[in-house]
């Protein structure tokens, strides 16, 4: 049975206006991400990787072309519908972790559930399960400041999974970590990909991560160079 595509980009152009000049971050990108993929997007800095990831994560709409996420054309959705799509379908992991410094590990993981009607006990139960999954059950009441970089990124991964999304998008998740810790994070994601059947798209400029992916997308100057 052929795998279904969960994200599809067709001739996507994204332009940013910087004063009077227009920056073309994506210049006509077409690609497909299939359910269960562990896709690695590589390219030099400034090549449009983050912009591409934001498109795939329904954070922004394309200037032209089409983006389908779980069958929905995001160019046709309003801000509220985009937020709902992100809430239900997508988890984000960032290079700088982006944890709230005043909240502890458990609270940070629960944060995406805050606006939902789910009751507190259920939220805590889910967050605890995920922290166990990423090996942080002994750090639940620590503040981000008290955690190592690798631990912080694990908290961020647990946070990305709390809404039980189909897709996890990671923007340079190893960029602020040493090589060894970075590899551990990638391996943890790979495990979630296999065991939890989550689709991963990981953006990086580190070519050594390519070996973990089942699909490799090379991007340069806002264009796809090759896909393997």
């Amino acid at each position: 049975m052929p795998k279904q595509s969960i994200i599809e980009l067709k001739d996507v152009v994204k332009e940013y206006r910087l004063g009077k000049t227009i920056v073309r971050a994506l210049r006509g990108v077409s690609l497909e991400i299939k359910r269960g993929d562990f896709a690695i997007v590589v390219g030099p800095s400034g090549s449009g990787k983050s912009t591409l990831l934001h498109m795939m994560g329904a954070l922004d709409r394309p200037t032209s072309g089409k983006v389908f996420i779980a069958g929905k054309d995001i160019g046709l959705l309003d801000d509220w519908s985009l937020a709902m799509l992100r809430r239900k379908t997508i988890g984000f992991v960032f290079q700088t972790f982006n944890l709230v410094p005043t909240l502890n590990t458990l609270e940070n993981v629960m944060l995406p559930l805050e606006p939902t009607g789910i009751d507190e006990i259920e939220k805590i139960k889910r967050a605890k399960e995920l922290l166990k999954l990423v090996g942080l059950e002994h750090r639940m009441l620590h503040k981000p400041m008290e955690l190592s970089g690798g631990e912080r990124q694990r908290v961020a991964i647990a946070r990305a999974l709390i809404n039980n999304p189909e897709i996890v998008l990671a923007d340079e998740p190893t960029g602020n970590l040493d090589t060894k810790t970075g590899l551990q994070i990638i391996e943890a994601m790979r495990k979630l990909n296999v065991e939890e059947k989550k689709t991963f798209v990981i953006v990086t400029h580190d070519l050594s991560l390519l070996k973990y992916g089942n699909r490799h997308i090379y991007i340069r100057d806002g264009l796809i160079e090759k896909i393997r």
Binding site: L59, D79, R86, N98
Partner: peptide
Amino acid sequence: YREIGTLKATGWTNANIMQ
């Protein structure tokens, strides 16, 4: 600023932020 951006990325709506 960044924290609010992150909340939005995790599915908070504009109304949630406002609240």
